[in-house]
Design a binder for these strands. Structure first.
Lengths: 242, 242
DNA sequence: CATTGACATTTTGTCGATAAAGTTAAAAAC
DNA sequence: GTTTTTAACTTTATCGACAAAATGTCAATG
């Protein structure tokens, strides 16, 4: 009687659980991923696991070395800098297109996504703390909504890809994070600029916004600082959800 | 003794042969890829095949529908337009970086790659016709060399990805193609502009160059092809290697 | 004391079999 | 004559077993 939901394939389950554990840090950067070990951990056979790992490695969460197995991808300042840079490029390009093509539904989607963040902030002030995944989902929806009217399938899928890659770092940031109110506010302002359809201002606002994760996780920009060496945060301003 | 070369894994063999057959058109767009059939065709077991197909589907050559199998990705004008647009964006960004960081080795690599194309053109005029794969390899090397000094690993790997996706269309183009001489010439000019390190001119030259594939395969863009940067193709020498 | 080489152990890569969908075809019902 | 049901048939997803490769151990050698 193992009634386990809408009948996904074991590969999909494995992908989901593995990436959750990698993003959350339960499987730490650099860690060797032994098939035998994962088999016990998730109670999933070797074949689905291999395929899941292959997929995760093409998504950048895992690195694969032929005949030498899989390991969790490393994190580093240089890596987040690379992600940030590429995200700025991709998302700005997509945003241009979205602004050019956006119709009423697009507007509505953005307003709704922003409202959802506000709502979570309100609930947080009352005594019904939203879970981390709630916040993360709403945040993702917001950034998806911003670009939803872009007519390039590839730009959109690249956006998702790198958004996910950044999630590992965002998770570090959110661990020590307080101020959902301010986050909602920041996103509201970004939404406003985008909805004004001023391409240049919108792109630079989005660009700065994307930079916030980097600045929050590696405040100094110095080499060799590791993510969870939580040196004293610069200012509360850096603690932004980006 | 089955002496079968430098000892790659069957997954790698399968990826190579499958993508060769897809790019060449031996496996046509939209065709269902039955595991059983592929097993006979390549004499490779189901597990390596599945993994190879998974990889190809994350590379965009194959589409996968959960529990419904794999099929060859469709081709269309809209698809090539999307590829072209994203390539322009990615490669221009990477080119900026390459120009900013390029050292002597970078210069040399470009000159060498360009020389290699000339060499093939010469051999073609004499009686030693270079094979399609020779030409393709040299062409790829050229485009790789242009961006080699870019310091973003992700931009470089995206360049490869979309270069490969465009290859299916390029193959169509090259089938009816004559004029390796002129192709070498065009690439030489592109190399010159890049080596002059004038970022703006280099980016628009590269952008136009990338457009050539689209213009050659779909000469009269039915749907609005928005020239993102460039003006118009030179003459009606559309049959260019791009 | 570092290096090499043989041997044991671990881990990956591959196969064949089977269970669980999905698909097609034919029969039954309206 | 269409729609629904049922049954036969494909095709995919998963497992367990095994072979091939990599890694680790440790004694012998220089």
């Amino acid at each position: 009687m193992n009634e386990q939901g809408p009948d996904r394939t074991l590969i999909e389950v494995a992908i989901e659980r593995l990436s959750a554990d990698i993003v959350s840090g339960a499987l730490q950067p650099g860690r060797k991923l032994l098939i035998a070990e994962l088999k016990k951990r998730y109670e999933i056979g070797a074949s689905p696991l291999r395929e899941a790992l292959a997929k995760l490695s093409s998504d950048g969460f895992v690195v694969f070395d032929s005949r030498r197995g899989f390991r969790v991808a490393e994190v580093s300042q240089a890596d987040l800098e690379d992600i940030t840079r590429v995200r700025k490029s991709i998302e700005c390009e997509a945003l241009k297109s979205a602004i050019a093509n956006g119709d009423d539904e697009w507007d509505v989607g953005i307003v709704a996504a922003s409202a959802r963040l506000h709502r979570l902030a309100v609930r947080a002030r009352e005594a019904d703390p939203p879970t981390g995944t709630d916040v993360e989902r709403a945040h993702r929806q917001f950034h998806t909504a911003l670009l939803a009217a872009c007519d390039s399938p590839r730009l959109l899928s690249l956006q998702q890809l790198f958004y996910d890659q950044a999630q590992r770092y965002r998770a570090v940031m959110m661990r020590q994070w307080h101020g959902l109110d301010e986050a909602a506010e920041v996103h509201q302002q970004l939404a406003d600029v985008v909805l004004s359809r001023d391409v240049d201002r919108a792109c630079s606002a989005l660009s700065e916004h994307i930079d916030l994760t980097l600045q929050s996780v590696y405040p100094e920009g110095a080499d060799g600082v590791r993510p969870h060496t939580n040196a004293e945060p610069k200012s509360r301003r850096n603690r932004q959800l980006a």
